[in-house]
Computed example of a mutant assay.
Amino acid sequence: MTMQMADPLDIPAELEPAIRAAAGEMEAGRDLPEKLVRELRDSGAFRLLTPRELGGFEAPLETVLKVYEGFGRLDASVGWIVWNANWGFIGALLDEPGNARIWGSGAEPVFASSSMLGTAVPCEGGYRLSGYWKLVSGVNRADWLAAAGLVMEDGSVRLTEAGVPDVRFFALRRDQLSVKDTWHVSGLLGSGSNDVVVEDAMVPGELVARVDVPARVRRPRYQGYIPALVLPGCSAVVLGVAQAAIDETVALALSKRTATGGRLAESAHAQAVIARSEAALRAARLLLLSTARDFDLAVGSAEPVTLEQRAALRAAMSHAAQVSRDVLAAMYELGSSASIYQGNAVERLFRDGMVALQHHNHSAGLFEAAGRVRFGIDPGLPVF
């Protein structure tokens, strides 16, 4: 029987010993060990956004981001997988027959996901989905792939009633896809973010979710802007990684000797760098959480999430990324030669954090999109 803790905020601390013990295996195997995935699943780490009737926490976005940050402090790859696997909210979008296919066995499903677009062609009973999805974190340990697809009809993109491209979420079994061993990278090794190929896979209609109509579950968590449940998670993870880098650098500085013989912690330069970095990181964290709280308040009062609120969330994500990048570089530099050695915590945090910051959700152009909204101009992005 799956065991679930009463408070999702407690999950990272409870799993810390298991995560620490698996660190070497993650690096060597370029994936999360199966045992750790089972422990994460059984703790409830993958059901933060899953509806209550399916065994989920149905947690507020602010709480979910705090959990991701907590995992990021322990291990970037684990935080990344927990974020990418939390697609249980699809259960609020699917009808009951679809949920019966995914959750009906009683076993907790493990998802991998990708927001890149494949193409889907309607057929009898559902759709034929094809596509190439890059960087699908955790796919080797997943039972299901939640993939976005653009519906095509007669060789052209099908439009919805609102006149926009018809994009839907498709749930595919693990045996319907091929995984390419492409995850040969410098950091975030344990995330197993390989590429995925799907060729003309039949997806029954009950496993296809629309995002342009109200969710079947009418509770507030699922009546807001659905992409907001996914987008900011990566930024919360990197905030946790950057905080861990500060913590490790402080510990290093208490014993590391400088060229003049004193401890690094006694250096005025080191003191100022730590203080500035921690202040900037705390401010970025508070900004991201406050925008998430605004989303929670809006859906809780049945108010529509505004374009301005979405722009504020995007700007907070970009700000968190920029600050985290600056902090990681500052800690790496402050550690001097100690930071370059394998086995040094800052060395791995720097690699992992910088790879996580390469995600398209952290691209500088998203600041521009948020700024366009402030000027009353369309953000110019399909998902914003």
Rank of each mutant, 00 (worst) to 15 (best):
S363A: 14
V383T: 14
K256D: 14
V238K: 02
A270K: 13
P33M: 05
L150T: 01
L159Y: 08
N99C: 15
F384N: 00
L54G: 05
E53V: 06
Y68K: 00
E266Q: 11
N84L: 07
Y68R: 00
A112C: 11
E27T: 14
V208K: 03
A245H: 06
P204D: 15
A329E: 15
Q271P: 02
L254S: 13
A320L: 09
A148H: 15
T258Y: 01
G380M: 08
T291N: 09
E303F: 02
H359I: 00
G233H: 02
A321S: 11
A364T: 14
R325Q: 08
L74V: 00
V305N: 08
R374G: 02
D154N: 15
F295R: 07
R276W: 14
A45N: 12
F295I: 11
F46D: 07
P97N: 04
L65E: 01
A330C: 07
D352Y: 07
L254G: 10
A6Y: 06
D294L: 14
R325G: 12
A265V: 13
V139G: 05
L36R: 03
A259G: 02
D95A: 12
G233Q: 02
L40V: 11
L188Q: 09
A283H: 12
M152C: 02
S337M: 03
H362N: 10
I11Q: 03
N344I: 04
D175Y: 10
W144A: 13
P17A: 10
G224P: 03
Y332H: 12
P304V: 10
G335K: 06
A253H: 06
D296I: 01
V136P: 13
L189Q: 12
L286V: 05
V78D: 01
S301K: 09
V273M: 15
A209V: 09
V67A: 01
I274G: 09
E16T: 11
L145R: 03
L307V: 05
T260Y: 03
E278A: 06
R325N: 14
G233V: 03
R257L: 15
L40W: 11
Y127T: 07
E368R: 09
L145N: 10
V213W: 02
L15Y: 10
I102L: 09
Y68M: 10
W183N: 10
G335D: 05
R325Y: 08
V196Q: 05
M3S: 15
W87N: 08
A251D: 08
G380L: 10
S186W: 09
R174E: 12
L297S: 10
W133I: 02
P165R: 09
E153G: 04
L54S: 04
D296A: 01
P17F: 14
S43Q: 08
R158L: 13
Q322L: 13
V208M: 07
L286H: 13
M26Q: 15
P51R: 05
E58T: 06
V64D: 00
R314Q: 11
G126I: 14
S318Y: 04
G131R: 00
G187N: 11
G131C: 00
G261Q: 06
G365D: 06
A284Q: 04
V64S: 01
V383C: 02
S178E: 15
A13H: 14
I226N: 04
G88K: 02
A142N: 04
A316E: 05
N140P: 00
V217W: 12
L61P: 00
R325M: 06
A245K: 06
Q309N: 10
V241L: 06
D296F: 01
F375I: 01
V82G: 00
L207A: 04
L177A: 08
K134R: 15
D42Q: 11
S318G: 12
